[in-house]
Structure formats: structure tokens, C-alpha cells
């Protein structure tokens, strides 16, 4: 499904569905199986988030990142409900080579979903501010690769905060201005779902786990009754709430990083044999009409 088709699809559904979202509700963390009660509600929005596949990484923390990513995508295809779309929240590749981008592109073609979307991580822009990323994944996007879409009454915003890196993530004035325009026409009860690679909250700025100008975007989001921000980058589950805005860091399909501040830096962690798959996973996000908020279910690889 292209972005345009998804928009049409969304309009069709959006007219018939009123989604009330009071705040994000995490149903389960690292459980097997699918979200309870999520099956077979055609009005519900079903999304899967995968993140940080790091295709091309060869270290001891995961000697087969390609196999892990393939397993994660196979797990997506095993879900009871075919997702409306799958979002990869960045670090698709480890070193931004054309071959690595092509491999991710080919692998994600095998996902059964209404659409496949991505945002770039800093590993996808190692030497070119994301040019090679956009050649493969940038069609139909604005600026450095940001975009939005409306599906089943939910407004989805995909942001790029991994290109102009000092230590922290950065959105830049052009993107902030675009967000202002993008949100301008929306009513305050529209559920907002925001994707970015780097957290939009200050998860651990000492390691660069935050975005230096995120407050300008969060200020634009505060008038909405429900805002859910999903990110990657930190390779672990982490939740944070700021007023009506909730933040959920996702895990990776490649290798774990330490907990914030645990050790000298966020370096790949090599786990004891057999433990790696418990650190990797995929995330289901379900917006049900009339529900209390998006249900978020994180699953380890099965």
C-alpha cells in the first residue's frame, strides 16, 4: 500500500470511526502471543513497530543480525491480525551502504501488511546526511524524509531526528515548521501517533538519548488529548509520561544496549548463550475505537 492509498483507506475508515484515546496503556511487556482482544475488529488500527535491525553489524553481540531481522519479520507475519502498516523506526542498516539498504528493502518486501514505512537512524546516515537512505526509502516524504498520514482516525507523524547529530538528536527549524502546519487543521481529540528514531523525551541525555529541540514539537502536541510517541535507538523497552503525552522506547532486532547510565557508554552488550532472543522483539500497537488509548504489546522473538 502506498502512502496515497493508505490515506484513501484512512479517509474511508475515518468517516465511520470515532477513536477516543485517553492515554497509552501498556498491556504487556515481553510476552508471547498476540494482543488480547485485538483480533478481528476491522475498525481498530493495528500497527507493528520494528526497530534497529542494524543490517551489516558483525560484532559478537549478534553474529547474525540478518537472521534476527528475518525472524522478527516472520513473527510479524504470524500475528493473528494483519497490521495496517509496519513502521521501522530506524537504524535499518549499520553502516549506510547501498547494499545494506537494498537488503533491508528486499527483506521488508516480505512483510504482510497494508504498508511498510520507515524513519532513518544515525546509522542510516553515516556519511551523507541520509541521501542513500532517501534514495531507497524517501519517496513521497518531505524535507529530509519526514511525513504524516491519516489512518482509521489516527494522525501518524514520522519525524527525522537522526541526521544533524551533535550528541543529541535534532529536528531542525524546517521540520518543526512543517509539524506546525501539519497539525494546524486537526481537532484536539484526534489521536496523534508520532514516530522518531531517537527519543523525543530526555531518556538519558549523557548518552545522547534525547532530542535537543524536541520541546518545540511537544509544545505543538500538548493541545491534543492523546499523543503517543514511539522511538527506537536505545535498544530497550522504556516508558515515560509527560502530561497527556506518552513515550515508549522499543527494543531492537539486533543487539541489546545497557540500561541508562549502566557502564561507560551505550555499547553493544554480549549476552550469555541463548539469552539474546529474549532481548529482541517486535511491538504491536492497537488503537481500538472507544478504547482508553493505544494498547502496546511488546513481544520477544518467538
Amino acid at each position: 500500500m502506498t502512502r496515497r492509498q493508505l490515506l484513501r483507506h484512512a479517509t474511508w475508515f475515518g468517516a465511520a470511526v470515532v477513536v477516543t484515546v485517553a492515554g497509552a496503556e501498556t498491556i504487556s511487556h515481553v510476552l508471547g502471543g498476540s494482543t488480547p482482544g485485538a483480533a478481528a475488529d476491522p475498525a481498530a488500527l493495528h500497527i507493528v513497530q520494528v526497530s534497529d535491525s542494524h543490517i551489516g553489524f558483525t560484532g559478537p553481540a549478534n553474529t547474525d543480525v540478518t537472521g534476527s531481522f528475518a525472524k522478527a519479520l516472520a513473527d510479524v507475519n504470524k500475528l493473528k491480525v494483519t497490521p495496517d502498516f509496519v513502521m521501522h523506526t530506524g537504524d535499518l542498516t549499520h553502516l549506510s551502504t547501498p547494499a545494506q539498504f537494498d537488503q533491508v528493502h528486499q527483506m521488508m518486501k516480505g512483510v504482510r501488511a497494508g504498508g511498510v514505512f520507515t524513519v532513518p537512524g544515525e546509522h542510516d546516515a553515516v556519511d551523507d546526511h541520509g541521501d542513500k537512505y532517501r534514495q531507497v526509502f524517501g519517496a513521497g516524504t518531505h524535507g529530509d524524509g519526514w511525513y504524516s498520514l491519516d489512518v482509521k482516525g489516527v494522525h501518524v507523524v514520522a519525524l527525522v531526528n537522526s541526521l544533524i547529530l551533535e550528541k543529541l538528536g535534532h529536528l531542525g527549524q524546517d521540520q518543526i515548521d512543517w509539524v506546525r502546519q501539519d497539525l494546524a487543521g486537526l481537532s484536539a481529540d484526534t489521536p496523534i501517533l508520532v514516530f522518531s528514531h531517537i527519543p523525543l523525551f530526555a531518556m538519558y541525555p549523557q548518552w545522547g538519548w534525547g532530542t535537543d529541540d524536541a520541546m518545540q514539537v511537544l509544545a505543538l502536541l500538548r493541545r491534543f488529548s492523546s499523543v503517543t510517541c514511539l522511538n527506537g535507538h536505545v535498544h530497550q523497552l522504556f516508558n515515560y509520561t509527560d502530561g497527556r503525552i506518552t513515550f515508549h522506547s522499543a527494543t531492537t532486532t539486533a543487539y541489546p544496549l545497557p540500561k541508562p547510565g549502566d557502564g561507560p557508554g551505550p555499547t553493544p552488550q554480549t549476552l550469555p548463550a541463548g539469552k539474546l532472543k529474549d532481548a529482541l522483539g517486535i511491538r504491536e500497537v492497537t488503537f481500538r475505537p472507544g478504547g482508553p488509548g493505544p494498547a502496546i504489546a511488546d513481544h520477544t522473538l518467538v
Binding site: 549499520h94 553502516l95 544515525e122 546509522h123 546516515a125 553515516v126 556519511d127 547529530l165 551533535e166 550528541k167 548518552w207 545522547g208 557508554g265 551505550p266
Partner: peptide
């Protein structure tokens, strides 16, 4: 300066 792959390295 920093490592552009690991920007926490400054």
C-alpha cells in the same frame, strides 16, 4: 569532533 556512527563518542 565525534563518531558519526556513535554520536555519544565525542
Amino acid at each position: 569532533y565525534r563518531c558519526s556512527i556513535h554520536p555519544f563518542m565525542v
